[in-house]
Amino acid sequence: MQPEISQSDLAAVEKCHKAYLRIREELAKVIVGQQRVIEEVLVAVLARGHALLEGVPGLAKTLLVSSLAQATHLTFKRIQFTPDLMPSDVTGTDIIQEDPKTGERGYKFLPGPIFANMILADEINRTPPKTQAAMLEAMQERQVTAGGRVYRLPDPFFVLATQNPLEQEGTYPLPEAQLDRFLLYIKVDYPSPAEEWEIARRVTGGHQGTIEPLMTGEELINFQRLVTRIPISDQVLGYAWALVRASRPSTDESPDFVTRWVAWGAGPRGLLTLVTCAKARAVLHGRCHATIGDIQALLKPALRHRIAGNYAAQANNLTSDRLIEMLVEAVPADAKYEKPENSLV
């Protein structure tokens, strides 16, 4: 039996839904289309996670992130990753400072740009692994260590990183273990014909909208806490569980094509991502429970960086997205899912 949701949480869900609709309206002043991307970014934010956005240049990735920061009353910093960027350029460093009264010298920590609520890590794959590791450690631990001291990052805190899939020269692709730190891997596609027409009309005509702040950081934190209290049925949880387990080759649950074409599948973090993000999407849409549709809507951004095809898959042009589509076809959504018998609880 699922726990009943309180009246206060019901009201909070409705409030979050209305805020989501208003944020979409505000972003539409400067962003044409990209509704799926906007929803997936907001899902990651509500789920207290980070997102990696991949798309060719000129698709308004940077504009989307900066506009979202304006709409949510959050501090925003952009870090342009380059080959010569050092870890201290991101996290901060100790500097020697002299007291003008006593003349004594001491160390003072100078915070880096990562000390903000919303971080745009632009072209994160253009910086060496050492700097990437410092960034990803801060993302995971939500703190920075410098000079033997620990400095907490502000709350809420999330990173929206971008990378360009076209140019590979001079880049340092993120290893799979580090990609797993990102809650969602979001693909930004070209606009539709009508959207591209509207983009040209707006930009060349000087029609620049102004974003109005709609949500405070405290309200966002309350919405994030609300997501954790949203119940999920065993059926929906079981469907996500079955999909994740089926993605792993050479297991009892994996279909034949997984054993044949998948090098490795999603781990437990993939299941946690699916469940948490499904609950966040439900709240955005004004619902107090996650559904099978929420799971299916988030499968690709949640799992595309957690499932890797082998050489045979690459030879047959089978991308992670295609393998996920095949998983959906192989795992029935209407089957009855129950807690395994040897469960610890």
Rank of each mutant, 00 (worst) to 15 (best):
F76R: 12
R36S: 12
E325S: 07
L166E: 08
E54P: 12
E219L: 05
S247R: 05
A146N: 01
G217Q: 12
L174M: 12
I221Q: 14
A280V: 13
G106K: 08
M1P: 14
Q97A: 07
E104M: 06
P111D: 01
T75H: 00
I124R: 06
V331A: 07
E219V: 08
E196T: 05
A308I: 11
V150A: 01
R181P: 15
I186Y: 01
H73M: 04
F76S: 05
R126V: 05
N317S: 05
A246T: 06
L68G: 05
A242D: 15
D9G: 09
V13C: 04
E176A: 10
R322Q: 10
S247L: 04
E325A: 05
K339N: 11
F182E: 12
W241I: 10
E218W: 05
P128Y: 02
T162G: 02
A278T: 09
Q143V: 01
T82M: 01
V203R: 10
I324H: 08
E14G: 09
P301W: 00
H73E: 06
Y311L: 10
K336C: 12
P57M: 15
G49T: 13
A240H: 11
I23N: 08
K101C: 03
A133P: 13
P193H: 09
D294S: 14
A44S: 13
L63A: 03
Q97K: 13
Q163F: 00
L327R: 08
E169M: 13
P87A: 00
K29N: 05
K336L: 03
F115N: 11
M135V: 02
D84E: 14
L344C: 04
P87V: 04
L237C: 07
F158C: 07
V30M: 04
T171L: 15
V32D: 07
E98G: 13
K130M: 01
H305R: 11
L27H: 02
G147F: 03
E26H: 04
L63E: 14
T291H: 05
L153I: 01
L323H: 03
G265D: 13
L271W: 09
Q80C: 05
L299Q: 00
T127Y: 02
Y337P: 13
K18C: 11
V144D: 13
G270E: 04
P100K: 09
G209V: 06
L52N: 14
R225K: 12
L327D: 06
P173M: 14
P173G: 10
W261A: 02
V262R: 03
A330F: 05
Y337C: 11
E325K: 14
G55H: 06
S233R: 15
P129H: 10
E98T: 14
G267R: 11
T91I: 00
K77M: 03
Q80A: 04
R306C: 00
G55E: 06
K130W: 00
E137P: 05
E54Y: 08
P193F: 03
N316G: 08
S6R: 15
Q7A: 10
H207V: 09
T204K: 10
E54A: 03
Q35D: 15
S254E: 06
Q163D: 14
T251L: 00
R22I: 06
A177G: 13
K339C: 03
Y20Q: 15
T131Q: 05
T131L: 01
